[in-house]
Design a protein around this nucleic acid. Structure first.
Lengths: 215, 215, 215, 215
DNA sequence: AATGAATGAGTATTCATTCAT
DNA sequence: TATGAATGAATACTCATTCAT
């Protein structure tokens, strides 16, 4: 019974987030009225405020939730005990699927971000979360790259950490682009970009051309 | 006289945009009050509305301005009559400088973007501008890549258009990241990512390793 | 058993009134939340409503309680079977003590009074109580005065009822003053005012009785 | 022209205070809606807030205004250059008229007081004003009494300051009583109380002057 | 063209009160 | 009887925008 009580709360919370997402997509963050969110979630306005401190808090939770959803997609696809090539390939493939699944929702995401970032306290919370989230992802990818370097299949003269940030930037950049120009940011684009990027990492079979500095 | 009048207007417009930028950075888009923008720009609220239809119109102009500022940086650095290698190298170097110059201002940029995107009419204007802007940049870069392919220095089996979008995504992604985590999105990061990317484009001096599919 | 039950109820009621008083002093009537009153009284919000119809009902009870506390102070001090001079003297001395005991609490009292008086139904209840309470007190004092007149020690040409109201007004006036200016409304002030008032009552055709200081 | 501008403001302010008074009397302070005050004052809600920071600020101003109205009544009636007996008599007569004029409005007064006193900042402003106001009145009356003492017509052994506070308390007390029981707090009551009070002040070693009725 | 006083639409939030357990 | 989660009415206040001067 205490179990079901606790679950009732979690279920309600999820219903509210779901409703906020739907209303937000329909009316935009500014245009969303708490009244409508509450009614769609089948709770009263008062109950809304038992779960979220304010409208902005609610939409901040929406953002964070969507990031963690993306993380779940990647985690499911990547077996940490598999060999590194498989892991890296799986990770990139999963990130491609993240683009497909989150892309259409990015407009709301950026809206909420804009509203929330206007307030110092919220900005700190949001930025802190994003910093931590991206850092953690970066470390995972960098580890894959380093294993490739140790295996002699990736050039040893590149900074794994920096390139991992590059991988993440590619994904973020396409998510951004997908927001307003879905045709220019398909999973095909992302895949091809990843391929080129990884190819650029590959240890040259032949000695590198003299003077090749890449840019 | 009409000239000087016109210039007075342009000067005022610039002063207003400048003021909006400063107030926006200080208070966020939602928190910025037209009153304060007006007073900082040393015009009356009424005058604000002679130059911009609404608050959102003003901040939309702010966004567009920042994109065009980026464009100016690149255009100055790239001589269209120079050889393509020089042009590509110059372009990437200039984009790196764009990251440095716009990075600190991206928070306001994304805020404004998010807020403005909430209204259908504005979303259309903003997204249309962004689509056009990015497409045009993509075409320029793709042209450089194609010249490299014609010269036999870039792999012929890659889609120049798609990879150009990749270059742009790298920049966008780092600009995004710089918003909340400047240390993870320095010009060093961008440069290294560009290098790897271009290296991945390079025509293999040796025959490509069998089974190399990049990812 | 019904006795102890009833007593439990009385104890709870008293605890609630006590809590309302404390919370009210701390936050003001408007700022006091039933939640906090309940928690301080160690009962649930629901229980609060078994004892008091509403928040305003609760604070109305607080006011009435403070009047009855004042009455208790006087009643203890005045022996109805003692001679009238002693009775009057005791009454005035007791009223002085009322000022000392209630003075510090008058701010909440007037706050509650003001808030409660805003609603017609409550105004009627409050005003009715105050009217009855003050009338009863007036009659008691008037009776003392009339005995003094019958004894020839008080001027016969004054209206005892009216002067009794004056005595009461003096107390009320100082209680009011004490709310915002305790230093100007000490028991010393009240005593001196009472003395002057009673001296003004004294029958003067004959030389004043030696040692008559009025109170 | 600048004059009329300035007057427009003063006129509007007065109209708003007037409207607040009327709406407050009709609905109570809590029940009064700013919307209704604005419409009655024939200004917009926005304009209301150009003159008063908040609803509470507005009703605080109402209280202060009513005190100053009372002061005006007294000032008009008292010629500072007239002999002290006349001055004191005039003052007491004027205070009686204050009771008549403010009595019916005291309920609103206490309501506003209650609401306003709940907030620390406002409490300080209100209490400070009341303290200053009553002190100033006390000093004026005390001066009259001291002249009476110097003239040998008032007992020299009483503290003029304290008795002045008594006079003021009598008025306050009757104003309070008038709020809920107008029949027990008429100007007749106040007059008789003043008379008795002044008679108690009279120097009694000598036989009372014939026709001395105190006020 | 410029001003800035006036307007008024629009809604997040609170918290007294209820009632299912 | 007691509880405290859920309800939802009710409104002060802001500030983008307008327009008379």
């Amino acid at each position: 019974m205490s179990d079901s009580r606790g679950n009732f709360g979690a279920v309600k919370r999820a219903r509210i987030l779901q409703a906020a997402l739907r209303v937000g997509e329909l009316r935009g963050v500014d245009g969303a009225r708490m009244e409508e969110v509450a009614s769609l979630a089948q709770v009263s306005k008062g109950t809304l405020y038992r779960f979220f401190e304010s409208k902005h808090d609610l939409f901040l939770a929406t953002i964070i939730e969507s990031y963690q959803e993306g993380l779940r997609i990647v985690d499911i696809a990547v077996d940490p005990d598999s060999p590194w090539q498989q892991r890296l390939r799986g990770r990139l493939a999963a990130l491609t699927r993240v683009l497909e699944s989150l892309g259409p929702r990015m407009s709301l995401h950026f809206q909420a971000w804009g509203v929330v970032a206007g307030e110092p306290g919220f900005q700190e919370r949001l930025y802190g979360f994003l910093r931590d989230f991206h850092s953690a992802r970066g470390l995972e990818i960098a580890e894959d790259i380093r294993e490739g370097q140790r295996a002699g299949e990736f050039r040893a003269d590149v900074d794994a950490g920096r390139l991992a940030e590059g991988i993440i930037a590619l994904l973020s950049g396409f998510l951004y682009r997908a927001t307003f120009d879905p045709d220019a940011a398909t999973s095909g684009h992302l895949q091809e970009a990843f391929s080129t990027f990884v190819r650029g990492l590959a240890s040259d079979p032949a000695p590198p051309a003299p003077g090749d500095d890449g840019a």
